[in-house]
Amino acid sequence: MLYNLLAPLGDDFIFFNLFRYLTFRTGCAIMTALVICFLIGPGMIRWLKSKQGSASNIREYLEEAHAKKAGTPTMGGLMVLISVTISTLLWADLSNHYVWIALMVMVGFGLIGFGDDYLKLTKKNSKGLSGKLKLVAQVSIGLIATLWVMHVAPETLNHHVAIPFFKSLFLNLGWFFIPWAVVVMVGASNAVNLTDGLDGLAIVPVAIAAACFGLIAYLVGNAIYSDYLQIPFVPGTGELAILCGALVGAAMGFLWYNAPPAMVFMGDTGSLSMGGVLGAMAVITKHELVLAIIGGLFVLETVSVIVQVASFKLTGKRVFRMAPLHHHYEKKGWSEPTVVIRFWIIAVILALIGLSTLKLR
């Protein structure tokens, strides 16, 4: 909004030229989201506690290990959702289609998570919405977003997937791009959801991935940099750096309250929305496969669940002591902070590997 209102004044007042710079607006988006999160955090935590009452927010099979967390309010991802949305609307170019696509996915998935979390609070159980209903809603939003992306993307790229480590190598999926993109968004959303099981575990890898995709969006949207790096050039994606910056700022603000011992959990409101928007940005920037590297921690957590379920159904035996993977290490005797910090280190390493694909071609 501020860009649309103030940038045109740059011709008459030199100060307003600042609003034309993507880097300036991204920095402002980071700080705005951070400050909003700090300001609304305490009040929102009090409100969530009043709504939760005696409702259980701990899975039955974890009640013994996480008994001390009983009573900690969930749905804290709402503060991230509010902070990112307001910050993005303030600092992004609101005539940019990609900004609205990403916001639609984030808010849409967030509403699904909100409904799930709200039922958990009001019905006083830990199950919430049915898995089938959540999946149908996610696929519907992902489908709308995919068709919108295909409509506004360059014709030479709207059905294509870029292959990392290779110069200008694209796989033309044709109409199969639609299910591919939907799977990326829905898969990323649920992968972050599975990772969100310990204090601070998911929010830092989300911030790392958002920072990486902020850089990727900036480079992909710049003709000079994309040509130099031999990565796809998608005009307009640079504005997504602002949303990514807002997500980083909000994530850091949320971590203030989610750091061990957590004062609030993000719930599905946060995990579904943040994972979904990361998937949407990967689809828009044509870096879906790079997301699997940068967000490799989320992939590992998801694969651990798939392997555990498949193994138990086929052989009656479990590969891990408990899935997702972070609970396996808890069962092995690792303390919660140890698991969290080591998983953060893995997320940083995978992010660096993912970013290296921009140059190693």
Rank of each mutant, 00 (worst) to 15 (best):
D12N: 10
F15S: 11
F16R: 12
N17E: 15
L22H: 10
L22T: 12
T23I: 13
F24M: 11
R25S: 08
R25L: 09
G27P: 10
A29V: 01
V35M: 06
I36E: 00
C37L: 10
I40S: 13
P42W: 15
G43A: 14
M44W: 12
R46N: 14
R46Q: 15
K49I: 11
K51M: 12
G53L: 08
Y61S: 14
E63Y: 02
A70F: 05
A70M: 12
M79C: 10
I82A: 07
I86Y: 00
W91V: 09
Y98M: 14
Y98V: 11
Y98L: 11
V99P: 07
W100Y: 12
W100V: 07
L103M: 14
V105R: 01
D116V: 10
D116F: 12
K120I: 03
T122H: 09
K123M: 07
K124S: 02
K127G: 05
K134V: 00
L135I: 15
V136D: 12
V136E: 14
G142L: 04
I144P: 01
A145Y: 04
A145V: 08
W148N: 08
V149S: 13
M150F: 02
V152I: 13
V152Q: 03
A153I: 10
L157Q: 05
H159G: 11
V161F: 06
F165Y: 12
S168G: 07
G174S: 12
F177R: 09
I178A: 09
G187C: 06
S189W: 12
A191H: 04
T195W: 00
G197V: 09
L198Y: 08
D199G: 08
G200M: 02
L201A: 02
L201S: 03
A207P: 00
A209R: 00
A211W: 01
G214P: 06
A217C: 12
Y218Q: 09
L219P: 04
I224P: 00
Y225I: 05
P232N: 04
P232W: 01
F233P: 03
G236D: 09
E239W: 08
I242W: 02
I242D: 06
C244A: 15
A251C: 13
F254M: 09
A259T: 14
P261M: 10
M263I: 12
M263V: 07
V264G: 07
M266R: 00
T269D: 08
S271D: 06
G276W: 04
G276T: 07
V277C: 03
A282I: 05
H287R: 05
A292T: 13
F298T: 00
F298Q: 00
L300Y: 09
L300H: 05
E301V: 02
S304Y: 05
S304R: 04
V307W: 06
V309I: 12
L314S: 13
T315K: 09
K317D: 07
K317V: 02
M322C: 11
A323Y: 01
P324C: 08
P324R: 05
H326R: 14
H326K: 10
H328G: 05
H328Y: 06
K331W: 09
K332V: 02
W334Y: 15
W334C: 13
S335N: 14
E336C: 11
V339Q: 04
F343A: 04
F343M: 13
I345A: 13
I345L: 14
V348P: 03
A351T: 06
